[in-house]
């Protein structure tokens, strides 16, 4: 009986605590959305407005009427779909290979991959590689150089580690080679993990910014984040006597706060909406662990 009460108490506290975290998260987001619907003049004069007196779609209408924005939206969409699929294939293949304990050179390979997490190759050498591959100014330059990463390989390998070799052998008796096993058994079996990693990749691609600045010259091929960054970044500098900075500050016209917030909402919403569709897969049965004997 005593256990029951403490159990209930825990439940209530837990729910309360999570609600608090939820609210703390939600509030600034709510504020962002409200600002994006506000009339700029009201925003300038208002003090602490949590509910505008007049809602306007003007900012959204303007944003979605600009070609730059629409172009960028489609580039980001392409990256997040095609890029994610390619990344999952490459990462999963490599991680599965590395998770098989019988593999020769497994440890050195793992170590070499780990090193790539710690050492950032220089900006310029990376640029040379992309240039020599003829990828400059192509959307592929935003996908291929970030196809996979040491971090993802190590994590995914962690998931595959728990898949026993015996499973694979059973399938091999049926005449499959490893590629067949991987495709027909491993991938479906690790669906929740795949969905999780897919989401990671999709978000990564959606937020592509720096490589686009480096590799893409044609502004119609820029992804959304470049456009967003351009709207949000303020040229302000505190440095004394920086004449150049002063000129920049004088020359740049800042977009209104409402427009900025609308841009934030438009650039974040599509990728955010992916999550609820994937959420059910995280909770579903048929998990990696359950095949453990």
């Amino acid at each position: 009986m005593k256990k029951k009460i403490s159990d209930h108490l825990f439940e209530v506290c837990n729910i309360g605590f999570l609600a608090l975290i939820g609210l703390a998260t939600l509030f600034p987001i709510y504020y962002t959305v409200v600002l994006s619907f506000m009339d700029p003049t009201e925003y300038y004069q208002g003090k602490l407005t949590l509910f505008p007196s007049k809602w306007t779609m003007e900012a959204y209408r303007y944003l979605l009427s600009t070609r730059t924005f629409i172009d960028a939206l489609s580039v980001s969409g392409f990256l997040a779909t095609v890029g994610t699929l390619l990344s999952l294939t490459v990462t999963s293949g490599l991680s599965y290979m590395l998770s098989r304990k019988r593999l020769r050179f497994r440890r050195p390979l793992m170590f070499l991959i780990l090193l790539t997490i710690l050492f950032q190759p220089g900006l310029i050498p990376s640029y040379f590689v992309v240039r020599e591959l003829g990828l400059l100014d192509s959307v592929w330059s935003l996908i291929i150089p970030s196809l996979t990463g040491g971090w993802y390989v190590l994590l995914m390998k962690g998931f595959y580690d728990s898949i026993p070799d015996s499973l694979e052998e059973a399938a091999r008796i049926d005449g499959c080679n490893e590629i067949g096993v991987w495709f027909k058994i491993i991938l479906p079996l690790s669906l929740p993990a795949m969905v999780a990693f897919g989401l990671f990749y999709a978000v990564g691609y959606w937020n592509t910014f720096f490589s686009a600045v480096m590799y893409i010259n044609d502004h119609t091929k820029w992804p959304l984040q470049v456009i967003l960054r351009n709207m949000l970044t303020d040229p302000t500098s505190a440095m004394s006597g920086n004449g150049l900075q002063q000129l920049r500050e004088g020359a740049k016209k800042m977009p209104s706060e409402t427009l900025k917030m609308a841009a934030v909402v438009v650039t974040t919403l599509p990728i955010m909406l992916v999550y609820p569709f994937l959420q059910k897969h995280f909770a579903k049965g048929a998990m990696v662990g359950s095949v453990k004997e």
């Binding site: 310029i124 600045v213 351009n230 920049r248």
Partner: peptide
């Protein structure tokens, strides 16, 4: 090639260094 103000320093650096 238009370079946005927000990333001008980085872009110019890559052009100069490469």
């Amino acid at each position: 090639t238009w370079i946005p103000e927000a990333s001008f320093d980085e872009k110019l650096n890559v052009m100069l260094a490469s």
